[in-house]
Design a protein around this nucleic acid. Structure first.
Lengths: 208, 208
DNA sequence: ACCTGAACACCGTTCAAGT
DNA sequence: ACCTGAACACCGTTCAAGT
């Protein structure tokens, strides 16, 4: 909100830079913008300031064009967000496939690896932004949902391989899933556990 | 977003109803709106459609006044949201005091009670809306943060009373806290656990 | 095909004028 | 003190006109 205002104030000098960039683009034989360019710009704003900050004027300034250009590529803002959602979902599918790759590892290392993946600061930021976005976008919501279910399934499978009964494996998989989601949303309101504490937690839940 | 449009379309007949209501208010000797009236209206929209749906025209229609009225009570939208945040925080403090009340209970019943509190559908909706809101409101963020820490402290204390060592109590309190937050955010993307499963989870974490 | 520029509706904000 | 009504800036959207 406040930074949106700051954005506006800085625009006087930015505009000329953008105009120069636009001219450069034209000279460089990339005169036409592509859908991907708009999606990239939207992604960049999404990660910096959240979904709410994605506005057409801001993207136009970023890309050095006027609003009419936007409406040639998209029907409306909603469609840009949908395209951006599709883009993110594709990337997400890759990382789900990354989960698949994990299944080659021995069960206990697999869990350790999933924990490390989640603890990464960059992933945490993306997850947080995207899960917020899921509130208003059914498409993103569906993607988040299938990711969550995929993770749950991998956990359940892994715990079964570790020798738990189906009921035990299901309960512990649910616990780990909720802890993971809680960790994404609670990292700012609760003390961040040390990696030592994370390991202890895993050992506890997996029964060592 | 779509329902906002629906809201607009229904406004033709609503407006006359609101005007009648406004006239009624005047006749009933409650001619002046109070800050609390605006806050209540904002709360109602918050729970129905989220923070993003709180707009001045919508509240004005709801209360049967024009926008100028709003600006007599508040400097801007941000201040209304802040007042609404204060209101919610006060209610929240009460429920934190409710947690205090729990401390009279024997430790194991206390945990059971906290689980039941969280499982209530109404509380879950409020928590979800408010935690979303916390992303853009520092004041709400602080309130959520102190609530989370309060809950963590109560859990830690309870587990200590149950006979766990300080380190064990801290780890298990963290686990339960993250599960709780994860439950609030994951209830739509993961299968809702049955109350039987919830009980089993509690028993597992508390070492029975 | 891809973009500009001007237009319009809607929301946030201001303010002079009413009671 | 509390509110109306008209005004203005800004964003989303449209569209005729340019290259």
């Amino acid at each position: 909100m406040t930074d949106t205002a700051g954005e506006r104030h800085a625009s006087a000098s930015d505009v000329s830079k953008r105009k120069a960039a636009a001219a450069a683009r034209r000279a460089q034989r990339t005169p036409k913008l592509t859908v991907a360019d708009w999606v990239d710009a939207a992604m960049s704003v999404l990660l910096t300031d959240g979904v709410g900050a994605i506005s057409i004027p801001r993207l136009c300034e970023h890309l050095g064009v006027t609003k009419g250009s936007f409406y040639w590529h998209f029907d409306d803002l909603e469609h840009l967000l949908e395209a951006t959602a599709d883009h993110w979902c594709a990337a997400q599918n890759d990382s789900v496939r990354g989960l698949h790759g994990l299944e080659a590892l021995p069960p206990d290392q697999r869990l350790q690896r999933m924990g490390e993946l989640l603890a990464g600061d960059e992933l945490l930021k993306v997850e947080y932004a995207v899960r917020d976005w899921a509130r208003t976008s059914p498409k993103v919501f569906d993607a988040v949902k299938s990711l969550d279910q995929r993770i749950f399934a991998v956990l359940e499978q892994t715990l079964t391989e570790l020798g738990f009964t189906p009921a035990e494996a299901r309960m512990r998989a649910a616990i780990l899933s909720f802890i993971g989601i809680g960790f994404v949303h609670g990292r700012d309101t609760l003390p961040t556990p040390t990696s030592e504490q994370i390991r202890a937690t895993f050992d506890f839940i997996t029964g060592k």
